[in-house]
Computed example of a mutant assay.
Amino acid sequence: MTATILAGLFGFFLSLFPPFLIAANVLEIAELISHPEQYDHQTVIIAGQVSNFQLATTRDGKPAYGFLIKDQAGTVKVVALGQAEVREGDLVIVEGIFSRMRQSGRAIVYNEIKATGVRSMNRLNPDFVG
């Protein structure tokens, strides 16, 4: 999908969401990864396409999932608890706490969002639209 078409789709789908979401300043991924220190440990909202989707289980045996959210400018890792309502290739809006760096055992993870909400724009309910 070309960047122009993707940008147009984001604009269209964002117009379908309540005004409070639009007023909440959906960040571009480029802004987030260009200035990670500014958003570290802050709640952010970004939009993009799901790639590298993976189901997981927490140490307590609860469902979890993760994916990369990407747009034409970059990629950010997203992790979330619960049942996934998105899949590979979906256009999504993600809200969560951004960490520019997190240590997990010996591994260091950069630019990650621990999602508090993930909404697929591919599965909008037509009953709620206009």
Rank of each mutant, 00 (worst) to 15 (best):
V44L: 04
L21T: 06
R87M: 11
E31V: 05
L21P: 00
M121H: 04
D60M: 08
P126N: 08
F13Q: 07
N25T: 14
Q103A: 07
I46Q: 04
P126Q: 05
G74R: 09
G82L: 09
L9H: 09
P36E: 09
N122W: 01
R100T: 02
E95I: 00
V94Y: 04
F53W: 09
D60C: 01
S15D: 13
L124K: 02
L27P: 02
Q72R: 12
G74L: 06
L16Q: 15
P19V: 13
D71M: 05
G74D: 06
M101K: 14
R106G: 14
L6H: 07
I69C: 15
V129S: 00
A24E: 14
A23I: 01
I108H: 04
A84E: 01
Q42V: 01
A56I: 01
I93V: 13
D127R: 14
V92S: 03
A30N: 10
I93C: 03
F10Y: 15
R123P: 00
V129C: 01
V92G: 03
F20L: 07
E28K: 14
F128Y: 11
F128R: 08
A73W: 12
E88N: 12
F10C: 05
V129D: 00
L91N: 13
E88D: 12
G8A: 11
I113S: 03
L16M: 14
L68R: 13
L16W: 04
D71F: 04
S51T: 15
I22C: 06
D71A: 04
R123Q: 13
E88C: 04
V86E: 08
S51K: 15
F98V: 02
E31M: 03
F17L: 15
L16D: 01
S104G: 02
K62M: 04
I113H: 02
G82F: 07
M1S: 15
F67A: 04
Y65Q: 07
N52M: 04
T4F: 11
S120M: 03
L32H: 03
Q103D: 09
I97H: 06
G96W: 10
F98A: 05
K70I: 03
T57C: 02
A7C: 05
V94D: 03
L6R: 15
L32I: 02
Q49V: 13
N111W: 01
